[in-house]
Every structure is written in C-alpha cells, then in structure tokens.
C-alpha cells in the first residue's frame, strides 16, 4: 500500500515537472518560415538567468521577455543575423551556444581536433616503436620456416601419431 502510494506520488511529481516545453507560450507567425526561424533561434540562444537552458526551455521572466522580443523581430521580417546581432550586442557572445570562430575562440573550435591529432601521432609512434622492438616482427628465419612447413605436411600425411618430446 505504502509502495503504491509512493509510486503514485512519484508519477505525479514527474508528470508535473516533465514537460519543460510547456514554458513556451504559443505564438503565431504569418509564415511557416518565420515560425521555423523563431523556434530555431530560441533553441540555440542561451538564457542568461538559467545558464544551462536555452531560451525555449527557460521559465525565467527574462527568457520570456527575450522570446517576446525575438518573436516581434521575426514578425517584423528581421533575419537570423539581425536577431542574433541584437542579442550579442546586449549580452555578449555568452548568449550563443555556438560561439563564432574568431582569433580568441579558434582554440575552442580546433582544440578537440588538435588533441585527437596529437593522440593519433602518439599512437603511431608507440606502435611503430613496439613493432621495431618486438622479435616477432622480425622477418622469419627461412630455415625455421622450411622446417615448420615440413612438419605441417608430415603431420597431415602421418595422421599425427608422434608428439614432440
């Protein structure tokens, strides 16, 4: 009984918290392109109050105001660049989840590739060195090879009666 009550409470709690998208108020746009642009923008612009949420997810009053502002600009026929420029001019690059590629951000963009590259180079060096150092990698002695072949052939012919001591 207790467990059932607990489960019920859990379901209620989850049901209440789950639809984060309910934060978005419905808006209408004259064209489907504008509607798409609006949703694209609020999806990739960051809320300054709840910093790990985008404008679409955030319940913060500022996020709502910024959604209003963006919707108005989109309805007025403003393009993507203009809206993003408007917000960056006021709040800085911080609002962008996708920071621009610039002199002071190139490391941010190139860093992961540089690290992977360095890792690959290190891996190649280590592998080559290991290969050079290991005896198995050396070309097999032709005499031993011939003996091995003979043994294998004999094995097949003789039915494998005798074992090596």
């Amino acid at each position: 009984m207790k467990a059932m009550l607990g489960a019920l409470l859990l379901v209620l709690a989850l049901g209440r918290g789950a639809p984060a998208l309910a934060a978005i108020e419905p808006r209408e746009f004259p064209t489907p392109e504008q509607d798409a642009l609006y949703h694209e923008l609020i999806d990739e612009l960051r809320c300054l109050v709840c910093q790990n949420q985008n404008l679409a997810e955030s319940n913060a009053p500022l996020a709502r105001d910024l959604r209003d502002e963006i919707a108005e600009m989109v309805r007025a026929g403003k393009g993507r660049e203009e809206v993003v420029g408007f917000l960056v001019a006021r709040y800085g690059d911080f609002v962008l989840y996708r920071p621009p590629l610039r002199r002071d951000t190139w490391l941010l963009w190139a860093g992961p590739f540089l690290l992977v590259g360095a890792g690959l180079v290190a891996l190649a060096v280590v592998l080559r060195r290991r290969q050079a150092a290991s005896p198995t990698a050396a070309a097999p002695d032709p005499e031993a090879l011939a003996r091995a072949r003979a043994l294998l052939r004999g094995d097949r012919a003789g039915g494998g009666g005798d074992r090596a001591p």
């Binding site: 300054l48 500022l62 105001d65 006021r90 709040y91």
Partner: peptide
Amino acid sequence: LEGRVGIDWGVYG
C-alpha cells in the same frame, strides 16, 4: 515597467 530598457542595457540579474 516592461523591461525593454533593461534588455537594451543587457540587464540579466
């Protein structure tokens, strides 16, 4: 009242 000037000034907190 509407926070428009706040947005222009980049107010967030």
